[in-house]
Amino acid sequence: MAISELELPATVTAHQFTEPAKQAEGLARDVAERLRAAIAANGTATLVVSGGRSPVAFFEVLAKQALDWSKVLVTLADERWVPVEHADSNAGLLKRHLLVGEVAKARFLSLYRPAASLEAAALETDRALAELPGIDVLVLGMGDDGHTASLFPNSPNLAEGLDPHSTRRCLPMLAPSVPHQRLSMTRALLARARFTALSLQGAGKLATLRAALETGDAQHMPIYAFVQDPLDIYWCP
């Protein structure tokens, strides 16, 4: 199966690569170009990325791109509710693979907040995100269940998380199939991105995307909500 075989909405642009290394290079090149343009136009740029193991190669290539990182704000689309020192922290992942060398000059806005409860932490993060000047570049991933960011199927807060008119920027998210409670940006905030990329690898992820398109139900497969807006998909086998 190739991404060209999918019936993608007119809002979606597909980029196909032959291998993961070329996908990482292509995505990093395009992201850096968009960040440079934002800096040239506005003096600053905001980059929102997703965590997990899949984007590590992309992070490492992006870290080598030439741009004025001191003018970039970096944050995450979602985070596990664990301190940065925890092995499963997405912030810790970024500090190891992206926020190194010249990129360490970027400002990092953490989603994690120590608080008495996940809901209290989400409210604190929501307030912190109010200072976000906008999102110039957003890089999403997708799970085998069709989730993106931490907008998981069957999570109690999913309907609000997908509501394009929600006033919340961050919500507590739960999923019985994954460890750790989560903090996630809402679709209402993520949809403001000027450029959104979805990074996918393998036939399995392509099959998941096809199922989401055929199902047409964002509550069942949340990624469906994001293919209704302008989206660039970067895929390799």
Rank of each mutant, 00 (worst) to 15 (best):
L171P: 00
P176L: 15
T208E: 06
L189M: 15
R113H: 11
A120Y: 03
N157H: 15
L129I: 06
R36Q: 09
W81G: 08
L47I: 08
K22C: 15
S117Q: 11
I39Y: 03
V178H: 09
F226A: 10
A193F: 09
M142C: 12
A91W: 01
A38S: 13
Q219S: 08
A115C: 07
L27A: 02
V82T: 14
T215S: 12
A37V: 06
A130P: 00
D30E: 12
L94F: 05
L111T: 03
T186H: 10
N157V: 12
R169P: 03
S199F: 03
V139D: 00
E102F: 04
E160N: 11
N42V: 13
E131T: 11
D144L: 12
R36I: 13
A106L: 05
L73Y: 01
S184I: 06
N90K: 00
E124P: 00
L8F: 08
H86N: 13
A116W: 09
A212N: 02
L47Y: 02
A38G: 08
F226E: 06
L162R: 06
A159V: 12
R127Q: 07
L123E: 12
E7V: 15
P20C: 06
D217C: 10
S199M: 15
A2N: 14
L231K: 01
R210P: 03
A77E: 01
T18R: 15
A66T: 13
A211T: 12
N90V: 01
A188P: 01
E214W: 08
V137S: 07
P237F: 06
K205L: 04
A212R: 00
A193C: 02
V72M: 04
L206Y: 06
P176C: 11
L94N: 00
Y234Q: 00
K205D: 05
